[in-house]
């Protein structure tokens, strides 16, 4: 049985894992301290144990210092570990040098819109959405000429930072890559950026982590990190189907 976090296949995931680990050791220490105190108190001061008579309630102040020590530890975690980590995550990396994909969630699938070699996304319009055009791509737009739209299949070339623009057609979803330590709400009406860098090749799962309706549990996709050559072959194959 796995007693910890899922495997980490990204370059930055271990930073999150380290924070999760530290804060758990912190609360475990506090919990064990007070649990020990609690059990000793119950044993020593149980009614019927004659030696307890005559003991006056403690006037100590140290529990306040324990609480303040916890606060100092929390503040340290927040200022020195969490804040830099969060700021780095939220800071938008430059688009050049990143592999950019637009993700459009819907009940109950993930659509991936790749800009192609020109790096420009073709225009989209909700009125154009149909069963064969899930994101409403305007095929007359010249920027759309080399675009690719796939359903539930996200392929990225290995060794490159991936920048995703997350949007939704209908309700709030949450784009969840457990192995990449990526989890981001996808709010309709806007595109939210999120980025990660895969540290190894392989296939992992994409989930939805925000209740989105009756098919929420089966809103699953696949992330494939593969060498650039294999990726190019896949991309051209898929485009041929479009």
């Amino acid at each position: 049985m796995n007693w910890g976090l899922p495997p980490d296949w990204s370059t930055k995931g271990h930073e999150i894992d380290r924070l999760v680990g530290i804060v758990h050791w912190l609360v475990l220490a506090l919990a064990l301290f007070w649990l020990g105190f609690f059990l000793v108190a119950l044993w020593r001061f149980r009614a019927g144990r004659a030696s307890a008579v005559g003991r006056r309630p403690s006037q100590a102040r140290w529990p306040l210092w324990v609480a303040l020590a916890l606060f100092v530890a929390e503040a340290g975690l927040l200022l020195f570990i969490e804040m830099p980590l969060w700021a780095e995550r939220r800071e938008l990396p430059p688009e050049d040098g990143s592999f950019v994909v637009r993700v459009v969630g819907e009940q109950f699938a993930w659509n991936f819109h790749y800009p192609g070699a020109d790096g420009r996304f073709g225009l989209t319009d909700p009125m154009l959405i149909d069963a064969f055009n899930p994101v409403g791509l305007d095929l007359d737009d010249e920027a759309a000429a080399d675009d690719l739209v796939t359903i539930n299949q996200l392929h990225v070339p290995a060794g490159q930072r991936v920048l995703l623009w997350l949007g939704s057609k209908d309700v709030i979803h949450n784009f969840y890559l457990p192995y990449m330590r990526v989890k981001q709400d996808v709010v309709p009406g806007r595109f939210t950026p999120v980025w990660f860098t895969p540290a190894r090749e392989g296939v992992s799962e994409i989930g939805c982590a925000q209740l989105c309706g009756l098919g929420h549990y089966r809103m699953r996709g696949q992330l494939t990190v593969e060498p650039l050559g294999a990726f190019t072959v896949w991309y051209e194959d898929e485009r041929a189907y479009m």
Binding site: L30, W34, F37, F38, A41, L42, F45, R46, A47, A52, V53, R55, R56, P57, S58, A60, P63, L64, V66, A67, L68, L70, F71, E74, A75, L78, E82
Partner: peptide, 27 residues
């Protein structure tokens, strides 16, 4: 996050008070 960390302290204090109440009692 800061307000969340701050609010955890009074909760810890109340719980500490209840643990300390037991000390020296006749339970």
């Amino acid at each position: 996050q800061a307000t969340t960390m701050i609010i955890s302290i009074p909760s810890v204090i109340i719980l500490s008070c209840l643990f300390m109440t037991l000390w020296g009692g006749r339970i």
